[in-house]
Design a protein around this nucleic acid. Sequence first.
DNA 1: TCACGTATATTCACTGGTCAGTATACTTGG
DNA 2: CCAAGTATACTGACCAGTGAATATACGTGA
Lengths: 225, 225
Amino acid sequence: MATRPDSSADGRTGAVPVPTRERILLAAGKLFHGEGIRAVSLDAVAARAGVTKRTVYYHFRSKDDLVAAYLEARDPPNLDWFRRHYSEAAGDVATRIEALFAALAGAAAHPRWKGCGFLRSSVELVKTPGHPAMNAARAHKKRLEDWLCGLFQVARADGARELARQIVLLIDGGFAVVLLNRDAGYMDSAGRAAGTLVRAALARGREPRHGEGGGEGNGGGNGDG
Amino acid sequence: MATRPDSSADGRTGAVPVPTRERILLAAGKLFHGEGIRAVSLDAVAARAGVTKRTVYYHFRSKDDLVAAYLEARDPPNLDWFRRHYSEAAGDVATRIEALFAALAGAAAHPRWKGCGFLRSSVELVKTPGHPAMNAARAHKKRLEDWLCGLFQVARADGARELARQIVLLIDGGFAVVLLNRDAGYMDSAGRAAGTLVRAALARGREPRHGEGGGEGNGGGNGDG
DNA sequence: TCACGTATATTCACTGGTCAGTATACTTGG
DNA sequence: CCAAGTATACTGACCAGTGAATATACGTGA
């Protein structure tokens, strides 16, 4: 015990036994995602991590802190999931976006699927808009949108930013609706809608008249950054 | 006290004093919608309604019952809101749908706006899929979808059911994303996406080859019920 | 018309339990 | 020895739900 190979650890301890902090974060992730933030007590997190609650409070100042850390930890793997499924698909941008939705639908079809942890957390924290976990969720969705926007710009789609926002809207709409109806078919409908929108933007992008492609795309004039 | 001018009450008591059950439901609605289900205790509901908690338990068997009743009560006025804003708009179906989203964006721009109560409740109740409140939420969204589907069928749009599902996805996506980012501009983006999709479906519907308009529309073959 | 019974409606005071967070003491590697 | 890390055991607040008593409306038989 009492081994804490700092975040910058280089493995020199040999056979690193999963540091306590990470074990807690892992347990918190499973429980928060599976049952919701408010529904999970720190006692439950501690039990699952195999430590006492006091140890949790040694590594995290409060439950809010732990929630924020959980969401921040979820960000990179989640984005990687999107990038991987996109890059593994073949065809033009529209077809690959459709493939992305097909992958989402596949995941959502599993009975234990629980939707998007970022969105769900944001709902549980409506009362506290400045909560660090809310910022983490916003940052994650922004990175997703930026990544999509980049794809669309490269493909010379018309209004890349606006299109990226609309795809995000369809993804998050899919998360919400499938979670409510427990019918992954809605995610397929979202995918077809996305395909239609991307193809329309690609077609507009190929029209000669509007010289520059990304001009009007900056969010349609609602102060996006 | 103890005056309960039954639901079929005439005004003979003079200035009907809002029956207790309704007062409770009203208080519950305000609090649940404003702060979330789990965040609100029945003590708080009782206090706001001006009764004791025991009285709440006289009119509702449990908190779950009260939550379900709250959502069921919200269904008709919510659908009316959609119908009203649609019927007050001018132009073809696509334009009027866009107007609907504009109205949503207007509502969402208010700082105290808290998203869709049905969606938020469904998130708070993920752990209990059979919860009566979940059924109420599903029923509400289904009615919204059916209403949209009817509009599109009348307009002879191609794939009316699928189109209705996609509009619902955009609406609910807008709810989720705006709630997270506190930027009603996303609802405008959703509206433009909706307009694009509806126009595409109208154009396809006007093509002569595919004879019947609503045939393929039943969910696009993903086992919808 | 009135006394009485009964169903309805409401209150006060309580229980059993959960949970975020803490005071304090023990352990162990360096 | 000391400081990081962990454990035991506790506090204070909150909360869903209940027991028992009380108050009011209303029908009915004499």
